[in-house]
Computed example of a mutant assay.
Amino acid sequence: MKALIDVIIIALDIFWWVIIASAILSWLIVFNVVNYSNQIVAQIDQTLRAITEPVLAPIRRRMPNTGAVDLSPIVLLLGIIFIKLVLSYYVRPYVF
């Protein structure tokens, strides 16, 4: 059971970095630091969105409209932290 929880925690760590990369790339595109007409940039953006949108879209639907600021990645990152804490408690109880 410990091995399965460790694999889940590693997958959550990888997903954490994918969410951060997606947010940073979206900022770089919005502020015109990278050119979206570049095929490599567009492909990376499409791939990151394909990975993160299925999880971020339901969060966006439930959150109030904040205008141009998208807070759904922050909510998702906080959720990942919570899940990792709960799972690590079951692997190593009473370590906190």
Rank of each mutant, 00 (worst) to 15 (best):
N38R: 08
I40L: 08
Q43E: 13
A21S: 14
A50L: 12
V55G: 12
V69Y: 02
V30M: 14
A23M: 11
Q39F: 10
N38A: 07
M63N: 03
A57I: 08
Q46R: 15
P58T: 09
I59T: 04
N32G: 13
L48F: 03
L71R: 03
L25G: 00
A42D: 03
V33H: 11
D45E: 04
N38S: 08
S22P: 10
R49K: 15
V33E: 08
Y36D: 15
I19L: 15
Q46M: 13
I20Y: 01
P54R: 01
A42M: 04
R61W: 09
I51M: 01
I40V: 07
L56Q: 06
T52W: 07
L48A: 04
R62T: 09
A23L: 10
N32P: 11
L48S: 03
W17R: 14
S37T: 13
V18M: 13
S22N: 15
A68P: 00
A42W: 00
V41Q: 00
V55C: 11
Y36G: 12
I29C: 05
I14T: 11
D13P: 05
Q39W: 10
P58G: 13
S22W: 05
P64G: 02
A23Q: 06
N35G: 04
L28I: 09
S72G: 08
L71D: 04
G67E: 00
Q39G: 10
W16E: 14
V69E: 04
W27Y: 15
A57E: 08
W16D: 13
V33P: 07
T47Y: 13
W16L: 13
I44S: 11
S72H: 06
R60D: 11
V18G: 10
R61L: 12
V55K: 09
M63T: 02
R49G: 12
A21V: 05
V34S: 07
Q39H: 13
N35V: 04
G67R: 00
V30A: 10
D13S: 14
N32Y: 10
L12K: 07
L28D: 09
I59C: 06
W17I: 12
D45Q: 01
N32K: 15
S22Q: 15
L25I: 00
A23D: 05
I24W: 08
F15N: 04
S37I: 08
I51R: 00
W17T: 06
V30P: 08
W16S: 14
A68E: 01
V18C: 12
R60H: 12
N32S: 15
W16C: 12
I59H: 02
I44W: 08
V69P: 02
